[in-house]
């Protein structure tokens, strides 16, 4: 799919909780095909410390309305700035970027995410549903303070939640959840902190299950031109932005 640079108008900036917000952007043109796991590089204007663009996964897309949604966690100045942008403002995006999740054989899939790692899971869940697969979501948060209404996920499949402090759902890490021991899944997709993804990949490997993870790395360009997002894999050096961000966990050499 051809990549484009485009100004999209922000029509809604929704604060979901202390840390997360969701922005809705509308394009003046028909959207290109955007696949789950792909991302956009967003230019953050008016921030002194934000020189480079910021990468964010597509959270949702509505083709007929020419709208895309991003789910963002405030971690620094760039994301803080984006959280304050008012409707009517244009945001400059380069998109769609990166390699998306793939579809193996099988019917029922487990989607495990931690924190803002849930961002690509909505589009992935929809995409699986559209191909007559059953997604089951397992999400881990630090506490109820990171939680927000998950009805859009619930419309697609069962949703299980864990929190580290037990303030919501099952107490503990996602990786300790009994669902991971369930034998009924044909594969696992994961996105979140690297130690979590590593533990999930380990479970998948033991059961010889298909498993894909969406990785992060520092990125200067997002489209394969700068070679700063390199990561050593079992198949040599890969660029997280263009060979990934989604990789099969068999390829990944974990750093944690």
């Amino acid at each position: 799919m051809k990549k484009r640079i485009e100004d999209l108008r922000l029509i809604e900036n929704i604060r979901l909780n202390d840390e997360y917000f969701e922005i809705v952007l509308i394009s003046g043109h028909p959207l290109p095909e955007i696949l789950p796991g792909q991302f956009a590089e967003v230019r953050v204007d008016g921030s002194e410390t934000t020189f480079l663009r910021r990468p964010f996964s597509f959270f949702d897309t509505e083709t007929e309305k020419q709208q895309v949604r991003l789910l963002i966690q405030i971690v620094g100045e760039g994301t803080q700035r984006l959280s304050e942008i008012k409707p009517g403002t244009f945001l400059n995006l380069i998109y769609p970027l990166g390699r998306s999740f793939s579809l193996p054989e099988g019917k029922k899939f487990l989607l495990v995410a931690g924190g803002v790692g849930i961002a690509p899971m909505l589009l992935l869940g929809k995409w699986l549903r559209a191909q007559d697969r059953d997604p089951v979501f397992l999400f881990g948060f630090r506490s109820h303070r990171q939680f927000f209404e998950l009805d859009r996920f619930e419309a697609l499949g069962e949703v299980y939640v864990t929190t580290e402090d037990g303030s919501l759902g099952v107490k503990g890490l996602v990786t300790a959840h009994p669902l991971l021991a369930d034998e009924g899944f044909s594969g696992i997709y994961t996105c979140g902190p690297e130690p979590m993804m590593k533990a999930v990949a380990h479970v998948a490997a033991e059961k010889n299950l298909f498993c894909e993870a969406s990785l992060e790395n520092t990125m200067a360009c997002g489209f394969g031109a700068c070679l700063t997002c390199a990561r050593q894999t079992t198949e040599g050096v890969k660029m997280v932005c263009s060979d990934g961000p989604v990789l099969n966990t068999k390829q990944i050499i974990w750093q944690t």
Binding site: F51, T218, C226, T228
Partner: peptide
């Protein structure tokens, strides 16, 4: 090895 990039005010550092 990575990280190979650090952002700074009006610039970036690379170690590709």
């Amino acid at each position: 090895p990575y990280p190979r990039m650090a952002e700074t005010h009006s610039g970036m550092l690379n170690s590709v």
